[in-house]
């Protein structure tokens, strides 16, 4: 697991009270975390702060998994 993916999973787990050990790279992060659109907005802000990146929403629309989001973060760093 890459550092980015590991940090992302820990961040999401902490924000939404999930067990990071049960989150997998290929999980659908919205379904797995059970979050609505408002919480998704919070997560995007957390991720941008944590990794010091900007993530335009239109680049995130097709992203479903932790692994895909981690890749996008790395591409923006």
């Amino acid at each position: 697991m890459s550092d980015t993916l590991d940090t992302l999973i820990r961040l999401a787990a902490k924000r939404f009270g999930a067990d990071p050990a049960k989150l997998r790279a290929e999980d659908d992060l919205f379904e797995r975390l059970g979050i609505d659109s408002f919480q998704a907005v919070e997560l995007i802000s957390d991720v941008e702060d944590e990794f010091d990146v900007e993530l335009p929403d239109y680049e995130l629309q097709a992203i479903k998994t932790f692994a895909a989001l981690a890749q996008k973060i790395d591409a923006r760093r």
């Binding site: 907005v41 995007i44 802000s45 941008e48 702060d49 900007e54 335009p56 929403d57 239109y58």
Partner: peptide, 10 residues
């Protein structure tokens, strides 16, 4: 023109 959102820091 993009409709994207920006965070508080930006």
């Amino acid at each position: 023109l993009s409709g994207r959102s920006i965070n508080a820091k930006k």
